[in-house]
Amino acid sequence: MTSTTIDTERRRHWMGVLAKSPADRLDQLWSQLDAVPAWSHLRRPEVGLVMVRGRMGGDGAAFNMGEMTVTRCSVRVDGGPVGHAWVAGRCARHAEMAALADALLQMPRWHDEVSRRVVAPLARQLADDRAQAGRKAAATRVDFFTMVRGED
């Protein structure tokens, strides 16, 4: 993989997976990686708010629904790319790991390993959790049956 093949869609995918996964799950996979290259903060983990917007009627004009806490962080691998992270909640470590993973995923030397050992298992777990919640919900779906009543 070369730098020019990092298309936006793939980066959006891994950044989303890293943000949506629980910090301890990410931490656990991260700790199994080989020693990562030296890096420094471009922006230390910083906690703030993002205004969540909704839409009137679900699909009309936008309105401000309320805020959520977010932590952002940016790092630069020495002599390498910059990684960014924007992660719901107030966990500095989560944002930092996600930013570093974003940087490594842009490096040919690291992309496949981080992709295979961190992003893929996280994505799988998210999908499994989602499917299980969906199966539990499906069990509460009403099966209507019609009773025959009256003369005819």
């Binding site: 906690v47 708010l49 993002v50 205004m51 909704g54 839409r55 679900g58 401000n64 919900a137």
Partner: peptide, 23 residues
Amino acid sequence: YRTTLPRFGASQPVDTGSMAIRR
């Protein structure tokens, strides 16, 4: 507490049509 935090931005409007339905 929220008044002590900076505002980083606003989200894209959330799409409730693609909600992962639990109810």
